[in-house]
């Protein structure tokens, strides 16, 4: 188990890109923090989620 946006998620072993696609996130509108560090977009495909990770996906909406 790992935590994504505060919820327990069974996603250990998946890449971040896989998880985001399955969860329906639009990659160009998000920023992802994993264990307190930003994950650059270019590394979503190679970042493998691990047991105990704490992930925050910030989904931006338009307006300003």
């Amino acid at each position: 188990m790992l935590k994504i946006n505060g919820e327990n998620v069974d996603a250990a072993g998946k890449t971040l890109a896989q998880y985001l696609a399955e969860a329906g996130f639009n990659q160009v509108r998000i920023a992802v923090e994993r264990n307190g560090e930003i994950v650059p977009k270019a590394k979503y495909g190679e970042t493998v989620l691990a047991e105990g990770d704490c992930v925050e996906v910030v989904n931006f909406v338009g307006g300003g």
């Binding site: 509108r29 920023a31 650059p40 931006f60 300003g64």
Partner: peptide
Amino acid sequence: FDRADAKAMLVDVVLE
């Protein structure tokens, strides 16, 4: 910014 994609881009760039 106003666009969501631009916001996400800047967050990535600055924090990285």
